[in-house]
Design a protein around this nucleic acid. Sequence first.
DNA 1: ACAAAAGTGTTATTATTACACCCATGA
DNA 2: TCATGGGTGTAATAATAACACTTTTGT
Lengths: 233, 233
Amino acid sequence: MVYTSEHPPFAVTVDIVVLTVRHDQLSVLVVRRGSPPFEGRLALPGGFVHVDESLDAAARRELEEETGVGLEAAHLEQLASYGEPDRDPRMRTVSVAWLAVLPDLPEPTAGSDASDAVWMPVADLGSRRRLAFDHFEILTDGVERARSKLEYSALGTAYCGPEFTVAELRHVYEVVWGVTLDAGNFHRKVTGMPGFVEPTGAQTTRGGGRPAALYRAGTAELLHPALLRESLR
Amino acid sequence: MVYTSEHPPFAVTVDIVVLTVRHDQLSVLVVRRGSPPFEGRLALPGGFVHVDESLDAAARRELEEETGVGLEAAHLEQLASYGEPDRDPRMRTVSVAWLAVLPDLPEPTAGSDASDAVWMPVADLGSRRRLAFDHFEILTDGVERARSKLEYSALGTAYCGPEFTVAELRHVYEVVWGVTLDAGNFHRKVTGMPGFVEPTGAQTTRGGGRPAALYRAGTAELLHPALLRESLR
DNA sequence: ACAAAAGTGTTATTATTACACCCATGA
DNA sequence: TCATGGGTGTAATAATAACACTTTTGT
């Protein structure tokens, strides 16, 4: 294949918006850049796609390499691609961005090799544009996607561990949306929605108070009727 | 910039799923390929992104060049990117796919230069996989996006001309979803939804029967509450 | 007058919201 | 026994769905 001005070569990268709920805050995994451009600035984890590697495989590999975070059981979906001609000063680049949602990990990113990766509350990145490239725009799009998908999909369970209480799931909604939800109504909707959550039969008292039933994620992908963001108080 | 096995060069293309409602069918604009690979097969319009050209500009340019269809006032949104290593036998390619929605044009694609472009009912492409590359997958994703966005966005008006009746808009919903809707309930929801449609004050009898009020698209992007696909009968 | 399509009324059903209240545990 | 959260009851309100009915044109 000959690259010409009409068929020019591009660099193709992946960037991943990894979200979790941590210390009552919606948080994103960021890395500190060790080389130009934007040296020393924060960036989303990501990197170049290899030859003979699919785009989602590249996202998983880069995340693991850069942060030590594995996505085995996690939710991963494509977000969008970003390709403004000037987005990378070095060369013409198209980045395929991904959204990943993880439970709050017991051992954050510690123990991993290359890792300068840290969890950063999304709110702390809101005003100051501390992110390299167009990563602030990618982050904004990822957060908006994550917020809206809570309404009509079962994505909320991806923030929870394999077993969780209804209150823990409600906490995810409250943090991601930044609202307070009615505990009783939320409980009814979630448990009454077929396929959203399934009782494990076990209970826990880890939240304090009366023991709560434990659930695992159900098989439903889409929720109907949706849990609307309006149900706040 | 040096391209290595870790930073390999890619070809980046755009492909556009252009939808309209035509002769009571959801239809997509396709072109007949004039050269290998997949010579003689149908394909979505698209092509290589130029240097110093943004991705959406490339989509508009390729569509105009290949089909003579301009997207000035039309709806255009990014769909997703497709980059399986074997998707193009010639080279490693990533395609950024776009979804466009147009009114049924009076002069289809006639009069345009290079144009082997035709409107094809989506249903006719369903069983036989007559499309080149992974374009059937892209089409499927585009149609699904178009269908689901009718529920919660004002995308339906993009299928209509600058002025339309409620019945014409309802026809769009019925064709895209493949259902029959209750005319009375639809009328109430559409006209009562703030920002969805605005009366022009004029009327038309082009549908036969009692004259219908004409509307233009409103400013709202999102509809609340959503028009659910369940409202069929 | 009649067919056809536009648009309004009416009602049953279902979903949402607010909030009261009881339940089961740890301290 | 008290504080803390889990979970259920209940009633007002709003949205949806079904369908009858009136309106206004062309033929």
